[in-house]
């Protein structure tokens, strides 16, 4: 802050304007979210009688209760975690291995392997539904948690490997080289140097992957038939009727289901968006 006062003043003005724009945009972004929140507090009859954009006449928390009981959320939520967490850990771990190999070594077929990973994430996955179902059914994993855990892990490998590889390439080679000079073998370099350095990318990926796997519905629908194993998304989906949609309950149920994702985001965001504190203390 050694610049002249005049530039400082225009800078402050510019900054104020920037803030106003950012805050306004944030509010605009929240309009549908807030609308959803309000909807969850209304009654379906209120909407059906007065129209969606009418001022709510009643506020009730009953929708959350209904969604919780009718959607069987208490029963399905543990399953969601049993499926999501192992998938998340396996994916991040395995993809960091692959990304390390693909970013730090040159070897025969390296490009082909990278292409395989990238290509696999491009196919619209819906078309894999029935082939994967048949495979799972044939090897006896159909209708088990493992069917979902294994598939999510495998399928997300493409994306995670791709992102992590690109991130790892931005890490200066000198750091790794120094470790090697100290006599570390490759696995120690990976574990003690590379992994800590990829933390921001891992945290960002963990957030996204958690969101995706936790919200998955189609695979659970196809790979699991037993009600005792189904994740929460299937319970929520079953709130939608063939004809009659209990909108307020559906919205309330979805909002409940976002809570774990929000918590994960809030918990992990410090790792990937903690501001410049790390650099600041250094400087």
């Amino acid at each position: 802050m050694t610049t002249a006062t005049s530039t400082n003043r225009t800078g402050a003005l510019q900054r104020a304007m920037l803030y106003v724009i950012v805050y306004a945009l944030t509010l605009l972004w929240l309009v549908p979210v807030i609308t959803a929140l309000i909807t969850a507090l209304r009654t379906n009859d209120d909407i059906l009688a007065r129209g969606f954009w009418s001022a709510p006449t009643v506020f009730t928390l009953n929708n959350f209760v209904l969604a919780w009981t009718r959607g069987g959320l208490a029963h399905y939520l543990p399953n969601s975690f049993i499926i999501t967490l192992p998938s998340l850990v396996f994916t991040l771990f395995l993809s960091s291995l692959a990304a390390y190999a693909l970013s730090r070594f040159r070897f025969r077929f390296d490009r082909l392997i990278l292409f395989i990973f990238v290509a696999g994430m491009m196919l619209p996955f819906q078309i894999l539904l029935l082939p994967v179902f048949r495979l799972m059914n044939a090897i006896g994993l159909y209708n088990t948690y493992w069917a979902l855990i294994i598939f999510h892990t495998a399928f997300q490998l493409g994306f995670c490997t791709f992102v992590l590889r690109n991130y790892m390439r931005t890490i200066p080679g000198e750091i790794l080289e120094a470790a090697r000079m100290d006599g570390c073998n490759e696995f120690r370099v990976y574990r003690q140097i590379m992994l800590p350095l990829t933390l921001p990318a891992m945290a960002a990926l963990a957030t996204l992957e958690f969101t995706w796997i936790f919200n998955d519905f189609l695979w659970a629908l196809i790979l699991i038939q037993d009600d005792a194993l189904k994740p929460v998304t299937t319970g929520l989906a079953a709130l939608r009727g063939q004809y009659v949609m209990d909108w307020t309950v559906i919205v309330a149920g979805s909002l409940i289901a976002t809570v774990p994702t929000v918590l994960v985001f809030l918990f992990l965001q410090r790792y990937f968006i903690a501001g410049l504190t790390l650099g600041a203390t250094k400087g």
Binding site: L94, A98, A101, I113, I116, T161
Partner: peptide, 28 residues
């Protein structure tokens, strides 16, 4: 002498990916 290192790193992830994604993809 350590040419095999990247393959060790890649073995499991690649095998899983081939079996559960690329295989069904070719099947489709």
């Amino acid at each position: 002498k350590s040419w095999w290192v990247p393959y060790v790193f890649l073995a499991i992830p690649l095998a899983m990916f081939l079996m559960w994604v690329i295989g069904p993809m070719i099947y489709s």
